Amino acid sequence: MTALFTRSTMLAVAGTALALSLTACQSGEDDNAAATSPTSATATVSDGASAAATVTSSAGSTGAGTSSGAADSSTSNDSSGRQTSTSTPVCAAADVTITAAKQDGPPYTHLVLTAKNTSGHSCRLAGFPHVQLLESHKQDVSPVAKSKPAAPVVLSAGAPAYALLKVSDGGTDEDNEPVSAFSVTLEGDSSVIAVSAPGSDGIAADPAQALVGYWTPELRNGADDF
């Protein structure tokens, strides 16, 4: 009886020890699994960061492309604006009315030619007026280069432009001849425009001393230019 009890007790103790051992092993495996889990999670986060970096890089490239496109559009608009201004048609004789008035006198040495756009649309007044003062002198009056404006003179409907015309050195001179009207032609149009000289007696002109300025959008002082 005592031997049987002792044997049963030993078997029970052995079973308990085996159960504890198995439990410890399972716990160890769970601990190992738990220890390896963060490594796997870290790899996942790393892969996600790489993907995020790739997306960010792509977005950055797309943004740069958009910026470049905006700059091209601005350049295109600027270029288009310039084409619009340079494509304005040149004023023809039928587009303007030209009048003459005295300036800087007495003695009156300069006339102001005013060309008013009466066409109802914009036009570009090119160069200078080609003036012939006397029937006996068929040469155009020489232009003064320094009076040329920096930009083209574009006239909107109803707007004026001006050109200065020196007709003599002033005073009484035997070379001066009376002029009651003279002719003007515009660049780009061979039509002759007859312009009446100011004053009831007209003007005294000396073709040898005559000079003409370029068309300008503002009225200038003739004595300051030539």
Rank of each mutant, 00 (worst) to 15 (best):
G199K: 06
P143L: 06
T44E: 05
V90C: 03
A100N: 09
D173R: 05
A94Y: 04
S180F: 15
Q103P: 04
R124Y: 07
D225K: 13
A52N: 13
G171H: 02
L165W: 07
L125Y: 04
S122T: 09
V45L: 13
S50H: 08
T36S: 05
K138N: 07
V90Q: 10
K116Y: 03
L20E: 03
A92K: 15
L134Y: 00
L111D: 07
G120T: 06
P129L: 03
T2C: 03
G60K: 00
E135P: 01
S87M: 01
C123N: 07
D47W: 11
A17I: 14
G81A: 15
V45W: 06
L165G: 09
L211G: 10
K166N: 10
T9N: 12
T36A: 13
G127Y: 06
N221R: 14
V195M: 03
G188M: 02
G199F: 01
Q139K: 12
A100R: 00
S190F: 04
W215K: 05
H137A: 13
P217Q: 02
P89V: 08
L186Y: 02
V112E: 14
A41T: 10
H121K: 12
V13C: 06
V96R: 05
P207R: 08
A3G: 11
A93Y: 09
G158N: 01
L165A: 06
S85I: 13
A126K: 12
D78P: 01
S50R: 07
Q83P: 00
A43H: 07
L133H: 03
S79F: 10
S191P: 00
D30N: 11
L134N: 02
I203R: 08
Y162H: 02
T185D: 00
S191G: 04
G81T: 12
P152V: 00
A210I: 06
G48P: 00
P107D: 12
H110E: 10
P89K: 15
T172H: 10
P143E: 00
G222P: 00
S136P: 05
H130D: 09
S142Y: 15
S183H: 02
A159F: 05
A70K: 08
D95N: 11
S190H: 10
R82F: 11
V154G: 00
T62S: 15
Y214R: 04
A126E: 10
A43T: 04
P149E: 01
L164I: 12
G170W: 10
A94C: 08
T86M: 11
A49V: 12
D95K: 02
S119Y: 06
T109Q: 15
G105R: 01
T6Y: 08
T39N: 07
N221Q: 09
S76C: 07
T2G: 06
A34W: 08
T97A: 15
T84Q: 13
Q26R: 10
A43N: 02
T62A: 15
L211W: 11
S8R: 11
A59C: 00
N77M: 14
